[in-house]
Computed example of a mutant assay.
Amino acid sequence: MSTDQESRPGRGPRQSPAEFEALYAALRRRATGAGGSPARIPPACVRAAAGEIRSGRTVTLAAPVETRSAPDNPQPAGHRLTGPSEDEALALGLHFATDRFGMNVHGDADSHLDALCHVVWNGTLHGGVSAASLTPEGATALSVELARDGIVGRGVLLDIPRLRGVPWLDPGDHVTAADLLAAERSQDVRVGEGDLLFVRVGHRRRRTESGPWNAAETRAGLHPAAMELLAERRVAALGGDGNNDTAPSLTDGVEFPVHVLGVHALGLYLLDYLQFEDLVPLCEEEGRWSFFCVVAPLRLPRATGSPVNPIAIL
């Protein structure tokens, strides 16, 4: 049955390896990308998305980069001021403040974009590209450089804690296709072709109010079967304030099923560990949950992802 016909929110069942493989094969057939090329947002969708700009207010969907160790961030970003020296700072004349950053792009704290080369499944990347294209010098195919012109379109935020009347989903809980459909009805919005879908589970609010925890072991995310709805609607990207994948995994033998289905099967860009706490009040104030959105990853040739600061424009 089409996921559009399922309307009752609730918990989805665990998936067996056979059920996951059947879903993977079905989504692979739906993929709009060909030969390893990501699905593109049609120019007509981008032009239409520009109509979402009404008030002109802008808001970030990214969290500040973390530079302190935490249970979910044992390898925090390194930041060091490289200039000026103490003597230069107090001296007359011109001097420059300079710094250096280093970070683990795919951690469990910092907002980032997954490139299409990030997920390796059965020896291949998206579109059947050989995983041998990943070399010590970097990715020779499907790197984040494919997104150098930005991911631009209509963003839609579906707020699941708002739907359920809770501040956040508890770690280990998950979002079903029925939840997404119910959120659409509650928020009077519908996700469509070329949209950038953002699903709030309240991860960031819980982290802020209750403190960091080991999100690698337990976190809220999507049920893998919900990805069928995204394929039907032909969305272009999926972003969450957590990792998008539930932990512990709901699929036996597959630790990150949403990543495999989204990135590898469908060719979606995934954005992990965003924050929507600045966006939600603006959406509530304006009475709408769609907006123009610009995602501009760094140009990092051969990289498997990028830190990212998506901007919503209402």
Rank of each mutant, 00 (worst) to 15 (best):
T208N: 12
L158V: 02
E184H: 06
V191M: 11
D252A: 15
R185C: 13
R162P: 04
G253T: 04
R185K: 14
A216P: 03
D195A: 01
L250I: 07
A141S: 14
L230W: 01
R219E: 12
G153H: 00
G242H: 12
L180N: 08
A216W: 11
V201T: 15
R233S: 05
V201L: 09
V166N: 05
P212W: 00
V189F: 11
D159R: 04
A139Q: 13
S186A: 15
D173A: 15
G155E: 01
R148Q: 13
G194H: 03
R234P: 07
N244C: 15
L163W: 10
E184Y: 08
S249Q: 08
E217V: 09
R204K: 10
T218Y: 11
E184S: 10
H174R: 12
R206E: 05
D241H: 04
F256N: 15
R185E: 15
L181I: 14
R205Q: 14
G240K: 04
D245Y: 01
D195K: 01
G155I: 01
A177T: 14
R219A: 13
N214R: 12
R233F: 01
H223E: 12
V254F: 05
R190I: 10
W213D: 10
R162E: 15
E145N: 11
A247E: 13
V235P: 06
V152R: 13
G165K: 02
E255K: 14
R206P: 08
P257C: 02
E255G: 12
R207L: 15
L146P: 03
L158R: 05
F256R: 14
L157H: 06
P212M: 02
R207S: 14
P224N: 07
A215M: 11
R164Y: 13
A237N: 07
T208K: 13
L197W: 00
D179P: 10
H223P: 03
S143Q: 06
V201N: 14
D195I: 01
E209R: 12
A139E: 14
D159G: 06
G202Y: 03
V144A: 09
D241W: 03
D252P: 06
G165F: 10
G221L: 04
E209L: 12
S186L: 13
L142T: 09
P224L: 06
G221D: 00
V258M: 01
E232P: 07
G239H: 08
E228K: 12
G172L: 01
G155N: 04
E193Q: 11
V191K: 08
V235A: 07
R164H: 15
R154H: 02
V156K: 02
A247F: 07
N243M: 12
P171I: 00
D241N: 03
F198T: 07
G221W: 00
F198S: 09
R206M: 05
R154F: 01
S143P: 08
D159Y: 01
V175L: 09
N243R: 14
D252Y: 11
P257W: 03
G253V: 02
A236N: 07
A216V: 10
L163C: 11
L163G: 09
Q187R: 06
G239Y: 03
T176G: 09
A139N: 13
N214P: 07
